[in-house]
Design a protein around this nucleic acid. Sequence first.
DNA 1: GCGAAAGCCTATCATTTTGCTATGGATTTC
DNA 2: GAAATCCATAGCAAAATGATAGGCTTTCGC
Lengths: 147, 147
Amino acid sequence: MKVSTRVEYGLVALADIALNSENGCTVSSAEIAERQNISQKYLEQIIIGLRQGGFVKGMKGSRGGYVLSRPAERIYLSEVLNALDNNILADAHEAEETLGNDILSSVNSCLWNKLNGYMRQFTESMTLADVIGEYRKSTGGGDMYYI
Amino acid sequence: MKVSTRVEYGLVALADIALNSENGCTVSSAEIAERQNISQKYLEQIIIGLRQGGFVKGMKGSRGGYVLSRPAERIYLSEVLNALDNNILADAHEAEETLGNDILSSVNSCLWNKLNGYMRQFTESMTLADVIGEYRKSTGGGDMYYI
DNA sequence: GCGAAAGCCTATCATTTTGCTATGGATTTC
DNA sequence: GAAATCCATAGCAAAATGATAGGCTTTCGC
Protein backbone atom coordinates (compact mmCIF):
# COMPACT_ATOMS: atom_id res chain seq x y z
CA MET A 1 0.00 0.00 0.00
CA LYS A 2 1.71 3.08 -1.24
CA VAL A 3 0.97 6.23 0.69
CA SER A 4 1.30 9.73 -0.76
CA THR A 5 3.84 12.22 0.55
CA ARG A 6 0.94 14.41 1.56
CA VAL A 7 -0.28 11.80 4.03
CA GLU A 8 3.22 10.92 5.15
CA TYR A 9 4.29 14.51 5.72
CA GLY A 10 0.98 15.36 7.35
CA LEU A 11 1.28 12.64 9.96
CA VAL A 12 4.93 13.44 10.66
CA ALA A 13 4.20 17.16 10.95
CA LEU A 14 1.34 16.55 13.35
CA ALA A 15 3.50 14.36 15.54
CA ASP A 16 6.28 16.93 15.39
CA ILE A 17 3.91 19.64 16.55
CA ALA A 18 2.68 17.45 19.36
CA LEU A 19 6.20 16.59 20.51
CA ASN A 20 7.58 20.11 20.36
CA SER A 21 4.69 22.13 21.74
CA GLU A 22 4.44 20.36 25.05
CA ASN A 23 5.94 23.16 27.08
CA GLY A 24 3.29 25.52 25.77
CA CYS A 25 5.32 27.10 22.99
CA THR A 26 4.29 27.12 19.36
CA VAL A 27 5.92 25.19 16.53
CA SER A 28 6.51 27.04 13.27
CA SER A 29 6.36 25.51 9.82
CA ALA A 30 9.99 26.53 9.29
CA GLU A 31 11.09 24.48 12.31
CA ILE A 32 9.19 21.42 11.16
CA ALA A 33 10.46 21.78 7.62
CA GLU A 34 14.05 21.83 8.80
CA ARG A 35 13.73 19.02 11.36
CA GLN A 36 11.83 16.74 9.03
CA ASN A 37 13.53 17.82 5.83
CA ILE A 38 10.40 18.83 3.96
CA SER A 39 9.83 21.80 1.68
CA GLN A 40 8.38 24.50 3.92
CA LYS A 41 5.89 25.85 1.40
CA TYR A 42 4.57 22.43 0.57
CA LEU A 43 4.31 21.67 4.25
CA GLU A 44 2.30 24.81 4.90
CA GLN A 45 -0.33 23.66 2.45
CA ILE A 46 -0.57 20.31 4.13
CA ILE A 47 -0.87 21.85 7.59
CA ILE A 48 -3.79 23.94 6.35
CA GLY A 49 -5.59 20.64 5.95
CA LEU A 50 -4.69 19.70 9.50
CA ARG A 51 -6.04 23.01 10.76
CA GLN A 52 -9.28 22.65 8.80
CA GLY A 53 -9.63 19.19 10.24
CA GLY A 54 -9.50 20.71 13.70
CA PHE A 55 -6.28 19.07 14.86
CA VAL A 56 -4.05 22.13 15.17
CA LYS A 57 -4.52 25.83 15.80
CA GLY A 58 -2.41 28.32 13.87
CA MET A 59 -1.12 31.48 15.55
CA LYS A 60 -0.14 34.25 13.20
CA GLY A 61 2.52 36.87 13.70
CA SER A 62 6.03 36.87 15.00
CA ARG A 63 6.50 34.10 17.54
CA GLY A 64 3.51 32.42 15.96
CA GLY A 65 3.23 28.80 14.94
CA TYR A 66 1.06 25.79 15.62
CA VAL A 67 -0.20 23.94 18.68
CA LEU A 68 -2.56 20.99 19.01
CA SER A 69 -6.16 22.03 19.39
CA ARG A 70 -6.96 18.91 21.45
CA PRO A 71 -4.92 16.50 23.54
CA ALA A 72 -3.11 13.92 21.43
CA GLU A 73 -5.08 11.18 23.17
CA ARG A 74 -8.23 12.41 21.46
CA ILE A 75 -6.85 12.85 17.96
CA TYR A 76 -7.77 9.64 16.16
CA LEU A 77 -5.69 8.60 13.19
CA SER A 78 -8.82 7.78 11.22
CA GLU A 79 -9.83 11.44 11.33
CA VAL A 80 -6.35 12.63 10.42
CA LEU A 81 -6.09 10.27 7.46
CA ASN A 82 -9.49 11.35 6.21
CA ALA A 83 -8.49 15.00 6.45
CA LEU A 84 -5.25 14.41 4.55
CA ASP A 85 -6.65 12.15 1.82
CA ASN A 86 -10.29 11.39 1.22
CA ASN A 87 -9.60 8.17 -0.65
CA ILE A 88 -7.39 6.38 1.82
CA LEU A 89 -10.24 5.21 4.08
CA ALA A 90 -13.69 4.28 2.79
CA ASP A 91 -16.83 5.56 4.46
CA ALA A 92 -18.65 3.17 6.72
CA HIS A 93 -21.94 3.36 4.81
CA GLU A 94 -20.20 2.91 1.50
CA ALA A 95 -19.85 -0.78 2.27
CA GLU A 96 -23.58 -1.28 2.57
CA GLU A 97 -24.36 0.00 -0.89
CA THR A 98 -22.98 -2.95 -2.78
CA LEU A 99 -25.98 -5.20 -2.74
CA GLY A 100 -26.09 -6.28 -6.35
CA ASN A 101 -25.73 -9.91 -7.31
CA ASP A 102 -23.00 -9.49 -9.87
CA ILE A 103 -19.37 -10.49 -9.64
CA LEU A 104 -18.22 -7.01 -8.69
CA SER A 105 -20.55 -6.97 -5.71
CA SER A 106 -19.18 -10.31 -4.61
CA VAL A 107 -15.59 -9.06 -4.79
CA ASN A 108 -16.63 -6.02 -2.80
CA SER A 109 -18.40 -7.91 -0.08
CA CYS A 110 -15.79 -10.58 0.49
CA LEU A 111 -12.64 -8.54 -0.10
CA TRP A 112 -12.79 -4.74 -0.17
CA ASN A 113 -15.50 -4.20 2.39
CA LYS A 114 -13.68 -6.41 4.86
CA LEU A 115 -10.33 -4.77 4.25
CA ASN A 116 -11.85 -1.31 4.50
CA GLY A 117 -13.69 -2.27 7.64
CA TYR A 118 -10.52 -3.44 9.29
CA MET A 119 -8.58 -0.34 8.27
CA ARG A 120 -11.32 1.91 9.61
CA GLN A 121 -11.55 0.02 12.86
CA PHE A 122 -7.80 -0.07 13.34
CA THR A 123 -7.25 3.61 12.63
CA GLU A 124 -10.20 4.53 14.86
CA SER A 125 -8.51 2.69 17.70
CA MET A 126 -5.23 4.56 17.35
CA THR A 127 -4.49 8.11 18.35
CA LEU A 128 -1.68 10.56 17.89
CA ALA A 129 -0.62 9.70 21.43
CA ASP A 130 0.17 6.18 20.27
CA VAL A 131 2.47 7.52 17.56
CA ILE A 132 4.22 9.77 20.05
CA GLY A 133 4.55 6.87 22.46
CA GLU A 134 6.16 4.77 19.76
CA TYR A 135 8.59 7.57 19.03
CA ARG A 136 9.58 7.97 22.68
CA LYS A 137 10.06 4.25 22.93
CA SER A 138 12.39 4.24 19.92
CA THR A 139 14.49 7.08 21.28
CA GLY A 140 14.82 5.36 24.62
CA GLY A 141 12.80 8.01 26.36
CA GLY A 142 15.82 10.29 26.38
CA ASP A 143 15.28 12.72 23.57
CA MET A 144 14.78 15.77 25.75
CA TYR A 145 17.94 17.57 26.72
CA TYR A 146 17.91 20.05 29.57
CA ILE A 147 20.76 22.53 30.02
CA MET B 1 -9.24 2.83 0.00
CA LYS B 2 -9.70 3.61 -3.62
CA VAL B 3 -8.87 0.81 -6.00
CA SER B 4 -7.94 1.33 -9.64
CA THR B 5 -10.13 0.06 -12.46
CA ARG B 6 -7.25 -2.15 -13.49
CA VAL B 7 -7.43 -4.07 -10.22
CA GLU B 8 -11.21 -4.07 -10.19
CA TYR B 9 -11.56 -5.28 -13.77
CA GLY B 10 -8.78 -7.81 -13.30
CA LEU B 11 -10.44 -9.48 -10.34
CA VAL B 12 -13.84 -9.48 -12.00
CA ALA B 13 -12.43 -10.89 -15.22
CA LEU B 14 -10.61 -13.64 -13.38
CA ALA B 15 -13.75 -14.63 -11.52
CA ASP B 16 -15.71 -14.49 -14.76
CA ILE B 17 -13.26 -16.86 -16.41
CA ALA B 18 -13.42 -19.20 -13.46
CA LEU B 19 -17.22 -19.22 -13.44
CA ASN B 20 -17.69 -19.67 -17.17
CA SER B 21 -14.97 -22.17 -17.97
CA GLU B 22 -16.11 -24.88 -15.62
CA ASN B 23 -17.48 -27.15 -18.30
CA GLY B 24 -14.09 -27.14 -20.00
CA CYS B 25 -14.78 -24.49 -22.59
CA THR B 26 -12.77 -21.34 -23.01
CA VAL B 27 -13.89 -17.80 -22.20
CA SER B 28 -13.08 -15.09 -24.73
CA SER B 29 -12.27 -11.49 -23.89
CA ALA B 30 -15.24 -10.42 -26.01
CA GLU B 31 -17.60 -12.45 -23.82
CA ILE B 32 -16.20 -11.03 -20.62
CA ALA B 33 -16.24 -7.51 -22.00
CA GLU B 34 -19.91 -7.79 -22.84
CA ARG B 35 -20.99 -9.54 -19.64
CA GLN B 36 -19.03 -7.20 -17.36
CA ASN B 37 -19.44 -4.08 -19.48
CA ILE B 38 -15.75 -3.32 -19.89
CA SER B 39 -13.87 -2.09 -22.96
CA GLN B 40 -12.60 -5.22 -24.67
CA LYS B 41 -9.24 -3.78 -25.73
CA TYR B 42 -8.54 -2.45 -22.26
CA LEU B 43 -9.55 -5.77 -20.78
CA GLU B 44 -7.16 -7.66 -23.05
CA GLN B 45 -4.24 -5.69 -21.65
CA ILE B 46 -5.29 -6.45 -18.11
CA ILE B 47 -5.70 -10.15 -18.82
CA ILE B 48 -2.15 -10.23 -20.20
CA GLY B 49 -1.09 -9.39 -16.67
CA LEU B 50 -3.18 -12.27 -15.36
CA ARG B 51 -1.55 -14.63 -17.82
CA GLN B 52 1.96 -13.46 -16.96
CA GLY B 53 1.08 -13.97 -13.32
CA GLY B 54 0.30 -17.58 -14.14
CA PHE B 55 -3.41 -17.50 -13.28
CA VAL B 56 -4.88 -18.06 -16.74
CA LYS B 57 -3.83 -19.73 -19.95
CA GLY B 58 -4.67 -18.08 -23.27
CA MET B 59 -5.64 -20.20 -26.24
CA LYS B 60 -5.24 -18.57 -29.61
CA GLY B 61 -7.23 -19.21 -32.71
CA SER B 62 -10.89 -19.57 -33.49
CA ARG B 63 -12.72 -21.06 -30.51
CA GLY B 64 -9.86 -19.77 -28.39
CA GLY B 65 -10.12 -17.90 -25.13
CA TYR B 66 -8.97 -18.24 -21.55
CA VAL B 67 -9.11 -20.90 -18.86
CA LEU B 68 -7.66 -21.02 -15.37
CA SER B 69 -4.19 -22.47 -15.24
CA ARG B 70 -4.74 -23.77 -11.69
CA PRO B 71 -7.79 -24.64 -9.61
CA ALA B 72 -9.44 -21.56 -8.11
CA GLU B 73 -8.71 -22.92 -4.64
CA ARG B 74 -5.02 -22.40 -5.21
CA ILE B 75 -5.19 -18.90 -6.68
CA TYR B 76 -4.51 -16.60 -3.75
CA LEU B 77 -5.80 -13.06 -3.92
CA SER B 78 -2.50 -11.72 -2.62
CA GLU B 79 -0.78 -13.02 -5.76
CA VAL B 80 -3.47 -11.66 -8.04
CA LEU B 81 -3.38 -8.22 -6.46
CA ASN B 82 0.40 -8.11 -6.74
CA ALA B 83 0.21 -9.05 -10.41
CA LEU B 84 -2.38 -6.38 -11.13
CA ASP B 85 -0.79 -3.55 -9.12
CA ASN B 86 2.60 -3.63 -7.47
CA ASN B 87 1.77 -0.88 -5.01
CA ILE B 88 -1.41 -2.22 -3.50
CA LEU B 89 0.30 -4.67 -1.15
CA ALA B 90 3.66 -4.00 0.47
CA ASP B 91 6.40 -6.60 0.50
CA ALA B 92 6.91 -8.50 3.72
CA HIS B 93 10.53 -7.51 4.13
CA GLU B 94 9.79 -3.88 3.41
CA ALA B 95 8.42 -3.55 6.89
CA GLU B 96 11.66 -4.57 8.53
CA GLU B 97 13.67 -1.81 6.92
CA THR B 98 12.25 1.04 8.93
CA LEU B 99 14.53 0.90 11.92
CA GLY B 100 15.40 4.56 12.30
CA ASN B 101 14.51 6.46 15.41
CA ASP B 102 12.82 9.39 13.75
CA ILE B 103 9.14 10.24 13.66
CA LEU B 104 8.61 8.71 10.24
CA SER B 105 9.92 5.35 11.44
CA SER B 106 7.56 5.51 14.38
CA VAL B 107 4.58 6.16 12.13
CA ASN B 108 5.67 3.27 9.96
CA SER B 109 6.10 0.81 12.75
CA CYS B 110 2.89 1.56 14.61
CA LEU B 111 0.61 2.29 11.67
CA TRP B 112 1.64 1.32 8.13
CA ASN B 113 3.55 -1.83 8.90
CA LYS B 114 0.64 -3.16 10.91
CA LEU B 115 -1.92 -2.25 8.28
CA ASN B 116 0.20 -3.73 5.51
CA GLY B 117 0.80 -6.86 7.54
CA TYR B 118 -2.90 -7.38 8.02
CA MET B 119 -3.69 -6.80 4.38
CA ARG B 120 -1.04 -9.26 3.30
CA GLN B 121 -2.19 -11.88 5.77
CA PHE B 122 -5.84 -11.44 4.85
CA THR B 123 -5.31 -11.60 1.11
CA GLU B 124 -3.01 -14.60 1.52
CA SER B 125 -5.82 -16.41 3.30
CA MET B 126 -8.35 -15.81 0.52
CA THR B 127 -8.54 -17.49 -2.83
CA LEU B 128 -10.46 -17.05 -6.03
CA ALA B 129 -12.68 -19.89 -4.86
CA ASP B 130 -13.89 -17.71 -2.00
CA VAL B 131 -14.91 -14.99 -4.43
CA ILE B 132 -16.77 -17.50 -6.55
CA GLY B 133 -18.44 -18.92 -3.47
CA GLU B 134 -19.62 -15.48 -2.48
CA TYR B 135 -21.02 -14.96 -5.94
CA ARG B 136 -22.93 -18.25 -5.90
CA LYS B 137 -24.31 -17.40 -2.50
CA SER B 138 -25.58 -14.03 -3.76
CA THR B 139 -27.29 -15.57 -6.76
CA GLY B 140 -28.95 -18.18 -4.63
CA GLY B 141 -26.92 -20.97 -6.17
CA GLY B 142 -29.13 -20.99 -9.24
CA ASP B 143 -27.21 -19.19 -11.92
CA MET B 144 -26.57 -22.24 -14.08
CA TYR B 145 -29.30 -23.12 -16.51
CA TYR B 146 -29.37 -26.51 -18.17
CA ILE B 147 -31.50 -27.06 -21.27
C1' DG C 1 -5.59 -24.22 -47.93
C1' DC C 2 -8.23 -20.21 -46.54
C1' DG C 3 -10.59 -17.17 -43.96
C1' DA C 4 -12.60 -15.95 -39.72
C1' DA C 5 -11.88 -15.72 -34.90
C1' DA C 6 -9.38 -15.22 -31.33
C1' DG C 7 -5.17 -13.97 -28.50
C1' DC C 8 -0.98 -11.00 -28.31
C1' DC C 9 1.87 -6.83 -28.61
C1' DT C 10 2.90 -1.98 -28.92
C1' DA C 11 2.12 2.79 -29.61
C1' DT C 12 -0.47 6.76 -28.63
C1' DC C 13 -3.15 9.94 -26.06
C1' DA C 14 -6.28 12.70 -23.05
C1' DT C 15 -7.25 13.43 -18.35
C1' DT C 16 -6.31 13.46 -13.62
C1' DT C 17 -3.37 13.27 -9.74
C1' DT C 18 0.84 14.26 -7.45
C1' DG C 19 4.38 16.95 -5.69
C1' DC C 20 5.93 20.59 -5.55
C1' DT C 21 7.38 26.19 -6.49
C1' DA C 22 6.17 30.95 -6.30
C1' DT C 23 3.89 35.13 -5.00
C1' DG C 24 1.82 37.79 -2.05
C1' DG C 25 -1.67 39.22 1.47
C1' DA C 26 -3.07 39.29 6.51
C1' DT C 27 -1.88 39.48 11.21
C1' DT C 28 0.68 39.70 15.31
C1' DT C 29 4.80 40.63 18.21
C1' DC C 30 8.72 43.30 19.43
C1' DG D 1 7.07 50.03 11.63
C1' DA D 2 9.53 46.11 10.58
C1' DA D 3 10.12 41.38 10.96
C1' DA D 4 8.10 37.02 11.42
C1' DT D 5 4.62 34.05 10.78
C1' DC D 6 0.33 32.05 9.06
C1' DC D 7 -2.89 31.87 5.14
C1' DA D 8 -4.49 31.54 0.40
C1' DT D 9 -4.12 30.82 -4.37
C1' DA D 10 -2.04 30.14 -8.79
C1' DG D 11 0.87 27.70 -11.73
C1' DC D 12 3.41 23.83 -13.47
C1' DA D 13 6.20 19.59 -14.68
C1' DA D 14 6.12 14.77 -14.17
C1' DA D 15 3.83 10.60 -13.42
C1' DA D 16 -0.14 7.64 -13.23
C1' DT D 17 -4.59 6.38 -14.98
C1' DG D 18 -7.81 4.82 -18.23
C1' DA D 19 -8.40 3.97 -22.03
C1' DT D 20 -8.25 3.65 -27.85
C1' DA D 21 -6.19 1.90 -32.03
C1' DG D 22 -3.74 -0.83 -35.28
C1' DG D 23 -1.87 -4.71 -36.61
C1' DC D 24 0.61 -9.23 -36.15
C1' DT D 25 0.16 -14.28 -34.92
C1' DT D 26 -2.01 -18.50 -34.22
C1' DT D 27 -5.66 -21.83 -34.58
C1' DC D 28 -10.21 -23.90 -35.81
C1' DG D 29 -13.83 -24.97 -39.10
C1' DC D 30 -14.90 -25.54 -43.62
